[in-house]
């Protein structure tokens, strides 16, 4: 087994990849991908931090299971909104929309 450091570093890098995706990508689908990467980073953190010498904490597993379910709901809603936006504009590019610039 490798140390906790590796997993913390991995989740930190995943988090920054998600942040980078949200900050620079101008495509609706890419933004949703960014959100999912952010969620995955947090989940990896929970699991890595709950695996200790003292034993395994089942609570963190429960947190991640519940959070996966809720996250899937958010992503489903985001995808249906994407479809509606696409119907109005026929494009997924944020720069061609009126208000979505930020």
């Amino acid at each position: 087994m490798i140390g906790l450091n590796w997993y913390l570093a991995a989740s930190a890098i995943l988090y920054s990849i998600g942040l980078y995706c949200l900050a620079t990508k101008r495509n609706l689908i890419k933004m949703i991908i960014g959100v999912e990467i952010l969620l995955n980073a947090a989940h990896l953190n929970f699991i890595a931090l709950s695996t200790t010498t003292a034993g395994l904490d089942p609570l963190a597993r429960t947190y991640v299971i519940v959070s996966i379910g809720v996250g899937a709901g958010v992503i489903a809603l985001a995808l249906s909104l994407t479809l509606l936006v696409y119907r109005h504009y026929r494009t997924l590019d944020v720069r061609k929309m009126r208000r979505l610039k930020w």
Binding site: L19, V35, A41, L49, L84
Partner: peptide
Amino acid sequence: WEPVEAGFKYLIMSAFGSATLLYAISLLY
């Protein structure tokens, strides 16, 4: 167009906030 677009923007920014919150909660845990 307006509600759908604004709703999407709201969703993405808010979901980013929730994910950050979850990350912070995992660190606190």
